[in-house]
Design a protein around this nucleic acid. Structure first.
Lengths: 338, 338
DNA sequence: GGGCGGCAGGTAAGCGCTTTCCCGCGCACA
DNA sequence: TGTGCGCGGGAAAGCGCTTACCTGCCGCCC
């Protein structure tokens, strides 16, 4: 690799001058030298070593994002928003996939710290695991103590910037929709029980049920993975345990898609025999059959807002932005068969 | 941030010793010192500065990936495969989204070079643009000349490691399927004309048509963006230009999904009135309505193979792996209405 | 004409690590 | 007892860049 010294030598100037010209420093430089240096850069195809730069300036330029899995449309959408804002700020985004392994989450915080990122964005759900939460919080604090910015999406027990989706309200909306359509026998297919996202959405659902005087016994709630496969598995289990249900509330769209697939396979009409409602409004929700009634969260926007919070710290106090959930009626829900 | 010097001071040793202990260097160190250093690391929550490390060792550890858009399921799948292999090799992946802007592609190659990545993976289609291709190739060569590894997915005019999907054969498969079902009036909704992916797939389609003695006039081919919106727009245009068609070949699944959406909206039965066939077999292909008949490409696997080629250079000669396309029959295709 | 200010450019000190080389010690050997 | 060797540990030289500080020169003023 050509170095700055090579460029300087070739242009017959000192490294300092070369550096100033290349970085457009405010220090004035003769036009003749400038041209010689720029020519040398071109001939040598010189690109400054980013590591050396970040070592010399103590200026952090990249930002880190920790997601469960970028290829999951939920995170893909959020990431899109994150990227957009980061790029506007001229910052490189380092994406870390934990594949839902809490240990990896911890590791990645260290790794991002090692890479001197300007900010860490934690997406995905918080965990109901006190020890893990404490450890994570401690690591983030250490990072913040050295000037790092942190923003989380979702409820994590960490004080700092946060974008918090209305999971409880959304759950309430799902429940309200199904109940006011006349359903009384609801089943729920939920993500892992130790995720705050699961419990928050479920809490809203319970609140709606309670208001309508409807039971939601434990046997009607099946926990599984927060993905398509989890959705089919949970639906199968639910159908075995409670064949009388007329509606299924899926705690995210991926699970809802899995449910739809299983119901189709078994020849169970949706919404004729069973209504299905999802959560998140991922892009594919409108393209499945039947188009999915769901609770919309502005995913890309949430990502953008989190990145903005991290990159444009408005003040010293931690900023918390709540984002609203909104019901989107499509074709997978209807009144129960009478 | 705590530095190595801080750790050394606290443990009462030299930075050299601290470094050796922390990195598990082969040089033997007394157990007592080791413990003192490790304790200091813990107390100070020390994490080595990755930039300083990569400067000191001349060892490149990250790898760079250039995609059009990670949030596009096509690239999301490929990225998944890339990540898997990279993680196995203990390497960090830097993902760069070009949003289909060739200039950004060029910029990102420089940026990744600046970041001293060990390898650059170029995904996404090649361009029919001689100047661009030459510039890109030149930049990649410079990178390779300094020891960087390059692997591309898809047909790019660049000699080096490559994973090349059977786009032509896949196009032939699409065409063959539709034609042997009895369709004679085909329409094609294609991605941008300047992409090699578009032209290769189209070439296969043409070959199939020729074999069956079927015309495929220019008026039956509509070019648009390679995404859902492009699919709906192209379908609308196609329906206007050639209302007699009984089948639509979409050159990727995103466009097919867009087509399906438009046809549903217009109340046109699929496959009753018009058959639709896609390309790629993205995860959502099986969940749309009707489930999409498509040509499967093992996307995640392609990503994994590309990363392997880049990270485990088998020899000096450039490795080219061809990957097969395979027809997946689902419900969106059928014989034409008689 | 001498002194001084300003200005282009260079010199060198880091940034935080790794690693080569060297030093001093204690041991075995003759 | 003297020589030599092995071994644990430290000193210091970089890795490639930025930047504070210094130098030498020119033109200006008194």
């Amino acid at each position: 690799m050509a170095t700055l010294a090579d460029v300087a030598r070739r242009a017959g100037v000192s490294p300092a001058t070369a550096s100033r010209i290349i970085n457009g420093s405010p220090k004035p430089v003769t036009e003749a030298l400038r041209e010689r240096v720029l020519a040398a850069v071109e001939e040598l195809q010189y690109v400054p070593n980013a590591h050396a730069q970040s070592l010399a300036r103590s200026h952090r330029s990249a930002v880190g994002v920790i997601v469960h899995d970028v290829s999951d449309p939920y995170f893909a959408e959020i990431t899109r928003g994150l990227q957009r804002v980061a790029t506007q700020h001229g910052r490189l985004v380092i994406i870390c996939n934990t594949y839902r392994d809490p240990d990896k989450e911890l590791e990645y915080v260290e790794l991002l710290r090692a890479h001197q990122v300007a900010a860490i964005i934690l997406t995905g759900s918080g965990y109901h695991d006190e020890e893990f939460t404490r450890t994570l919080d401690a690591k983030l604090r250490v990072y913040q103590a050295t000037g790092g910015h942190v923003a989380v999406i979702g409820r994590h027990d960490h004080t700092g910037h946060a974008v918090i989706p209305a999971n409880e309200t959304g759950g309430y909306l799902m429940g309200g929709e199904l109940l006011s359509l006349g359903h009384r026998n609801l089943g729920v297919i939920a993500g892992p029980e130790h995720l705050t996202t699961t419990t928050d959405r479920l809490a809203g659902l319970r609140r709606a049920a309670a208001e309508h005087g409807v039971e939601l016994p434990a046997s009607r709630i099946v926990y599984a993975g927060f993905d398509r496969a989890g959705g089919t598995a949970a639906t199968a289990a639910l159908l075995d345990a409670a064949p009388e249900i007329t509606a299924i509330a899926a705690l995210n769209d991926s699970m809802a898609v899995g449910a739809l697939a299983l119901l189709r396979e078994r020849g169970i009409g949706v919404p004729g025999r069973i209504s299905v409602i999802g959560f998140d409004d991922m892009p594919i929700a409108r393209d499945v059959t039947p188009a999915l009634t769901t609770v919309r969260l502005p995913l890309a926007d949430m990502g953008a807002r989190a990145m903005s919070l991290a990159l444009e710290p408005s003040g010293d106090a931690p900023d918390v932005e709540h984002v609203d959930a909104e019901l989107v009626r499509r074709e997978s829900s209807g009144p129960p068969a009478s």
